[in-house]
Amino acid sequence: MTAVAAPKLAAAMRSQAVLGLGLVVISLTAAGLVLLATGVNPLRAYVEILRSAFGSVDALSEDLVYATPVILTALSVILAFRCGLWNIGADGQLYLGAIAAVGLGFNHVDLPGPLLLPAMIVGAFVAGAAWAAIPALLRLRFGASEVIVTLMMNFLAVTLATYLIGGPWASGITPATGPIAPAGFLPSLVPGTRVNANLLVALAAAAGLAFVMKRTVFGYRVRTIGANIHAARFAGMNVDRVRFLSFAGAGGLAGLAGFGEVAGIYHDLPNGLSPGYGYTGIVVALLARLDPLWAVVVAFALGALNVGSGGMQRALGVPVSLVSIIEALLILLILGTRLMERRT
């Protein structure tokens, strides 16, 4: 750091701090006004949000339960975005991962017990990657917009899951597939809570992606393509190959999220498995400025906000839709102030 840069940096940090503080005040006021309008004391609501998000081991564990799939879908979006492609399809890729995991765990594939879990992980990754490979191929080979194709493939993935749930893999009465074999259950990290070993998978994936991006030749290529695709081509890189592999890998990461929901939470595939984790992943990825490690932090923060405001909803008896309004308002404010956006 040079002597000239130091004051500049300090000034930048100061303005960031002022902005951050201002943002918190504005957000709390805006959400408070919404709450007041519905006859709820905002201060009580904030206390309830904090208590429900951080007040107990159970609360913290639920923050992590929410964060686990979101970390993976956010990593998925990051990996694709780093080489200039939008992955709006993490939700569908998550479903494919879940379908593969249930398919292996439910259909009595003759696997020795200890092999089932690894097979489910690999199967979920491959299924998510294969689902993502289609839009990647259509984009790189034919120029079809990956935004549109992945959006449509989300609908197709849900249609496929719905068909399996009601048709060939039906459990009988519940709108879910039959259960997977117990050998396919992921262990809980904290007994009595739902935090499962897929959190470790997600954290390892975040660390792994950060490492690949910073320290490997592949990561260097991805970064170069993301920064300047023409320069990358000019330097003789096989740009399409790198982008294809990244996008397929992105699908695989989202597939792992589906694996975790099946093996760690439900032990089957219920109708409505994902409440939009793939879309939340997009928000987290951008708020984390495409940094895999920050994505973990942001996913946890969003989990806390979600669990906290859910608890507030139950404690104060306000409609659930109010919770999504407040959450969305906060994020829109963050976007509007561009506090956490990546600057290029």
Partner: peptide, 8 residues
């Protein structure tokens, strides 16, 4: 609590 996903 209305309109929740299975996880919620």
């Amino acid at each position: 609590s209305e309109s929740l996903s299975p996880s919620q």
